[in-house]
């Protein structure tokens, strides 16, 4: 049994910075998480994570959508955490089009969103915001309080059930609250987990609405976490 946390967010919103602070809080509470960083073409965030002393796995999705790639490889990600004797896996996924929701029903879904992106952004992005359990709003310190409050309200309009945490990736403010929420996450069994929301159209079975996690359920142009890319189907 493994606690499974999926973190999604717009590029540059501060996902890694926020998680680094949260991981330090978790470690202070004697929790040893494993981290998987899913990116598209390049990342050096693994070095940043490695500094906190947690095991890090990097997955580069290349031609595949990073969210789809993460979902497809869920089992390997969980195995990595098990192998490292963690009881918590944090997956940070790059996401590109924001039309996906990478969160599974069994995971804790955290959306990181940048308050400077404007009060209409929550309306523009898709299920990765509206189906999240927690919405972490970053960079609130560079806008006025009034704008910050309006942004928060826009988020709540799109996801009335979200728990909102105003968070600062530089100072770490709010990250202890995020860590508390992560500790409350439920444990999942990987095999039968399903997505909260189907992915938009593209070129694999996920793109046509398959929500089951793992290899047995997928066809199309797929890329495994070890870098092997192939077509599976008729």
């Amino acid at each position: 049994m493994m606690k499974f946390v999926i973190v999604a967010g717009t590029p540059g919103s501060g996902k890694t910075s926020v998680l680094l602070h949260a991981i330090n809080h978790l470690k202070n509470k004697s929790i040893q998480p494993s981290v998987a960083k899913i990116d598209c073409l390049y990342t050096d965030d693994d070095k940043r994570y490695a500094k906190t002393g947690v095991p890090v796995l990097v997955g580069l999705s290349k031609d595949m959508c990073p969210d789809h790639f993460g979902i497809y490889n869920t089992e390997e990600l969980l195995d990595f955490a098990i192998k490292n004797k963690s009881d918590l896996l944090i997956v940070e996924t790059a996401g590109l089009c924001h039309r996906c929701s990478p969160y599974t029903k069994g995971s804790l879904g955290i959306c990181v969103i940048d308050a400077t992106s404007g009060p209409n952004t929550p309306m523009k992005v898709g299920p990765f915001l509206s189906t999240a359990d927690i919405v972490a709003i970053t960079k609130g310190d560079v806008i006025s309080q009034a704008e910050r409050e309006i942004f928060r309200e826009s988020v709540l309009e799109m996801n009335p059930n979200a728990k909102i945490i105003e968070i600062n990736g530089l100072s770490g403010k709010g990250c202890s609250e995020l860590a508390e929420e992560i500790m409350l996450a439920k444990a999942v069994e990987s095999g039968d987990d399903v997505l909260r929301h189907n992915a938009p159209l593209a070129i694999c079975t996920l793109c046509v609405g398959e929500t089951r996690v793992n290899k047995a359920h997928h066809r199309g142009i797929l890329r495994r976490i070890d870098g092997f890319q192939f077509y599976e189907g008729e």
Binding site: T116, G118, I143, S144, E147, E149, I150, R152, I164, E166
Partner: peptide
Amino acid sequence: TNPKKKMVAELSQNMNFLADMTVVEFLKKH
């Protein structure tokens, strides 16, 4: 955290607005 319960109002050094809306829309929303 809840702005409806918030006890603190702040006037920071941030001099410019980033929100793309008119004065009246902004104030009504706030």
